Simulated scan of single mutants.
Amino acid sequence: MPFINECAVEACSYNVGSACHALAITVGDPPHARCDTYFVTSFEGGDPAATGQVGACKMADCRHNSRLECQAPGIAVGPGREAADCLTYSPR
């Protein structure tokens, strides 16, 4: 599973210091490559010792996607069309 190299979505409960601490995220709700794991609450979530990874990607049209699994060496998440988008998404 590729690592989330950077998350620039400060409001997400899994983000601490621009690092995602969700064990795994899901990307996409076609036709948009949003981070489906994005979550805002008053407390921090995830495992502080873990670096988030991409567990599933529903963006079958992405050049990094093979059988709904991300094959990119790593991804970046940040503000885009939605509050938290996969900035590595690239249509074929």
Score class of each variant (00 low, 15 high):
Pro2Arg: 06
Pro2Asp: 08
Pro2Gln: 07
Phe3Met: 12
Ile4Trp: 03
Ile4Gln: 04
Asn5His: 12
Glu6His: 14
Glu6Pro: 00
Glu6Arg: 15
Ala8Gly: 12
Ala8Trp: 06
Glu10Ser: 11
Glu10Thr: 11
Ala11Asp: 13
Ala11Leu: 13
Cys12Ile: 02
Tyr14Asp: 00
Tyr14Glu: 00
Tyr14Met: 04
Tyr14Lys: 01
Asn15Arg: 06
Gly17Ile: 04
Gly17Ser: 06
Ser18Trp: 08
Ser18Tyr: 14
Ser18Asp: 14
Ala19Tyr: 09
Ala19Ile: 15
Cys20Met: 03
His21Trp: 02
His21Phe: 02
Ala22Leu: 02
Ala22Gly: 05
Leu23Gln: 12
Ala24Pro: 00
Ala24Gln: 09
Ala24Cys: 09
Ala24Gly: 08
Ile25Cys: 06
Val27Gly: 03
Val27Asp: 01
Val27His: 00
Val27Ala: 07
Pro30Met: 09
Pro30Ile: 07
Pro31Lys: 09
Pro31Gly: 07
Ala33Ile: 06
Ala33Gln: 08
Arg34Pro: 00
Cys35Gln: 03
Cys35Leu: 07
Thr37Gly: 00
Thr37Glu: 02
Phe39Leu: 14
Phe39Ser: 11
Phe39Asn: 12
Phe39Trp: 13
Phe39Glu: 13
Val40Ala: 06
Val40Pro: 01
Ser42Gln: 11
Phe43Asp: 07
Phe43Asn: 06
Phe43Ala: 08
Glu44Phe: 14
Gly45Lys: 10
Gly45Thr: 04
Gly46Asp: 02
Gly46Met: 03
Asp47Glu: 13
Ala49Lys: 10
Ala50Arg: 07
Ala50Val: 09
Ala50Leu: 08
Gly52Tyr: 00
Gln53Met: 14
Gln53Gly: 09
Val54Tyr: 02
Ala56Leu: 15
Lys58Cys: 10
Lys58Phe: 12
Asp61Thr: 15
Cys62Ser: 12
Cys62Ile: 10
Cys62Asp: 08
Arg63Leu: 13
His64Thr: 09
His64Trp: 15
His64Gly: 05
His64Ile: 10
Asn65Ser: 13
Asn65Tyr: 03
Ser66Met: 10
Ser66Val: 14
Ser66Tyr: 11
Ser66Ile: 10
Ser66Trp: 07
Arg67Gln: 14
Leu68Pro: 03
Leu68Cys: 11
Cys70Asp: 06
Cys70Glu: 04
Cys70Ala: 10
Gln71Leu: 14
Ala72Val: 08
Ala72Ile: 01
Gly74Trp: 09
Ile75Gly: 02
Ile75Lys: 00
Ala76Cys: 09
Ala76Lys: 14
Ala76Tyr: 08
Val77Ser: 00
Val77Glu: 01
Gly78Ser: 08
Gly78Pro: 04
Gly78Ala: 09
Gly78Asn: 04
Pro79His: 07
Gly80Cys: 05
Gly80Met: 02
Ala84Val: 00
Asp85Met: 15
Cys86Pro: 05
Leu87Met: 10
Thr88Gln: 01
Thr88Cys: 03
Tyr89Met: 03
Ser90Glu: 15
Ser90Ala: 15
Pro91Trp: 07
Arg92Phe: 11
Arg92Asn: 14
